[in-house]
Computed example of a mutant assay.
Amino acid sequence: MTGQATTVSATAVECVRAAITETCGGFEQRTRLLLERNGLPEPERGEWYPLANVRALYEDLHSTTGRNIVEQIGVTFPRVTDWPGGVDGVGAALAGLDGVHRDLHRGEAGGYSFTRTGERTGRLVCDTPYPAAFERGVVRGIGKRFGVDTGFVAIDDHTRSDGATVCTVEWWGERGTSATARLGTSSDTEFVTGD
Rank of each mutant, 00 (worst) to 15 (best):
residue 161 S to E: 15
residue 144 K to H: 09
residue 133 A to C: 14
residue 163 G to M: 05
residue 126 C to H: 14
residue 144 K to L: 06
residue 145 R to W: 02
residue 110 G to T: 00
residue 124 L to C: 08
residue 105 H to N: 13
residue 150 T to R: 10
residue 146 F to P: 00
residue 155 I to T: 11
residue 146 F to D: 09
residue 161 S to W: 10
residue 163 G to T: 05
residue 127 D to G: 13
residue 111 G to K: 11
residue 140 R to W: 12
residue 106 R to N: 10
residue 162 D to L: 09
residue 134 F to N: 10
residue 122 G to K: 07
residue 107 G to E: 02
residue 137 G to K: 05
residue 109 A to P: 00
residue 152 F to G: 02
residue 149 D to T: 05
residue 166 V to T: 12
residue 140 R to N: 03
residue 115 T to E: 15
residue 120 R to V: 13
residue 167 C to R: 04
residue 157 D to N: 12
residue 130 Y to G: 10
residue 112 Y to H: 15
residue 105 H to P: 01
residue 107 G to V: 12
residue 107 G to T: 07
residue 163 G to Y: 08
residue 134 F to G: 03
residue 156 D to Y: 04
residue 162 D to V: 08
residue 147 G to Q: 05
residue 138 V to L: 06
residue 116 R to G: 14
residue 164 A to L: 11
residue 109 A to Q: 00
residue 152 F to E: 14
residue 157 D to I: 02
residue 157 D to G: 04
residue 117 T to I: 08
residue 108 E to R: 11
residue 144 K to Q: 15
residue 153 V to S: 04
residue 121 T to R: 02
residue 139 V to F: 11
residue 148 V to K: 13
residue 166 V to A: 08
residue 137 G to H: 09
residue 108 E to S: 06
residue 140 R to Y: 14
residue 160 R to I: 08
residue 113 S to T: 14
residue 122 G to E: 03
